[in-house]
Design a protein around this nucleic acid. Structure first.
Lengths: 208, 208
DNA sequence: ACAGGTTTCGGACGCCGTTCGAATTCGCAC
DNA sequence: GTGCGAATTCGAACGGCGTCCGAAACCTGT
C-alpha cells in the first residue's frame, strides 16, 4: 500500500466525518487536504467513488470487529449455556447505535457511504459491502440455538427486521423524536438499545 | 399553477421513474423532456433540488391517501369494534411495499427523494416532508385503542419500528434475500406484508 | 394602442470528475 | 555510481453540471 494511497484514505475518512453533505467532498479539496494532486485519486483508486468505498470498507471492518467482540463476550459469559437473547441482539445493533451517537466516532463515514450507495450510477462498486453478510452468519448460529422453533428464513428475516429498526434509529432520529413526542431520549445509546431489544427479543420467542 | 410548472413537475416525475441514478436527472435533460429552457427550473422552483422535492410531495400525497383509505376500510369493517391490529399494520406499511414492487408505480420518485434527502447541502428543504407525521397520528388513535397498556411513547416507538422494517424491505431487497437464503420471496407483496405483520403485531400484545 | 409586470430565453460563470501526455521519482542490474 | 525501464506525480485540458442575469417576448388591464 502506497504512501499516497494511505494519505488519501486518511484524508477521505477525516473529511467524510467533517462534511455535512457528501457533495462537499470534492476531489480537489480532498487532494489539497492530503497534500497531493487531484489526479492521484484516479491513479490509485480509479475514481473518487471507489476511494470513498475503500474508506468505508476500512471503517466497516472496525465496526464489525466490535460487533463480533460483543457477541463473543456474550457467548463466553454464559458458556456452556446458550447466550442471553438480549445480549445477542445488543451485540448486533449496539455498535451502530453507539457509534452513530458518538460525535468523535467514524460513523459519519458509513452514513455517507450508505446514502451514496443508493444513488450511484454504478451499484456494482457497492455490492461486495452491501451484500456482505458473512459476519451476520455468526449471529445466526446462536439465534438458531435460542429459537429452534424458527426455520432459517425466519431467523434471517428477524435479523433483517432488527437491522431495519437499527437503521431507522441511526438515520431518522428527528423523525423518531417527533413520532414519540420526544418522550424517548434518542441521544442516549443505552436507552435506545434497550428499546430495540424490548421489541426485537419477543420476535424470537415461541408463539403461545 | 403555471403551464410550465406542471410540465416540469410531470417531466420530473416521469424521469425520476426512468432514471437509474438521480444524478442522471440533469436540469438540461429535464428541460428538454419538458420542452422548456433550463433556467425555467430556477425561475419556477428556485433550484433543481426544490423541483424534485415538489415532485416527491405530490407522489407522497397519493401514497398517504392510499394508506388512509386502507385504514378507514379496516376501521369500518369492524365498527363499532376496534379494527384488527393486523389490518392496521398492513394499512401502515402495505402501500409502500406494494408500490415498491410495482414496476409501473411512482415509487421510484420516493426512493430517489429519500436518498437525496440524506445527502443534501440544505436539509431544510426536506424537513417538512421528512418530519411530516400528521397522517401517522390517525394510526396512533387506533393503536392506542388496541394496546391501552402502552403509553404514547411506546406506541410511537413501535410505529417507528414498523416503518424501519418497511424501509429495510423497500430499500435493501437483495440484502434481505441473501440474509434469508432466498427462502422468502421478497417480490411477492402479500407475502412480505404478511411477514411484517407477523413480527410487528406481537409488539402491541400485552406482555404475559 | 400601450405600459408594466410576468415569463422565457440564451449565453456566461465557476465548479465538478476525469483524462492524458509530459515530467519526475524510484528500484535495481551492471 | 550509473543508466534505464517502470511506477508515480503533475498540470493542463475537456465536457458537463447547476445557477445567474440581462434582454427579449408575452401577456393583461386600461
Amino acid at each position: 500500500m502506497n504512501h499516497t494511497s494511505v494519505r488519501l484514505l486518511d484524508a477521505c475518512e477525516r473529511m467524510l466525518c467533517e462534511v455535512e453533505c457528501v457533495d462537499d467532498l470534492t476531489v480537489r479539496r480532498l487532494a489539497r487536504e492530503a497534500g497531493v494532486t487531484p489526479s492521484s485519486v484516479n491513479y490509485h483508486f480509479g475514481s473518487q467513488e471507489r476511494l470513498i468505498v475503500a474508506t468505508a470498507e476500512r471503517v466497516y471492518r472496525r465496526l464489525n470487529q466490535e460487533r463480533m467482540n460483543l457477541l463473543n463476550r456474550a457467548v463466553q459469559r454464559r458458556h456452556p449455556e446458550p447466550p442471553l437473547i438480549e445480549e445477542v441482539i445488543a451485540a448486533l445493533v449496539g455498535p451502530s447505535v453507539r457509534w452513530s451517537l458518538e460525535p468523535t466516532s467514524k460513523y459519519r463515514v458509513l452514513a455517507h457511504f450508505n446514502s451514496m450507495s443508493q444513488r450511484s450510477r454504478d451499484p456494482e462498486i457497492y455490492r461486495a459491502i452491501i451484500e456482505g453478510v458473512e459476519h451476520h452468519r455468526a449471529f445466526m448460529v446462536y439465534l438458531r440455538q435460542l429459537a429452534p422453533w424458527l426455520d432459517d428464513a425466519g431467523i434471517g428475516w428477524r435479523m433483517s427486521c432488527a437491522l431495519g429498526i437499527r437503521s431507522q434509529v441511526t438515520r431518522s432520529r428527528v423523525r423518531n423524536e417527533v413520532l414519540t413526542d420526544h418522550a424517548i431520549d434518542f441521544s442516549d445509546p443505552d436507552a435506545v438499545i434497550a428499546r430495540i431489544v424490548e421489541v426485537v427479543a419477543p420476535m424470537f420467542r415461541r408463539l403461545s
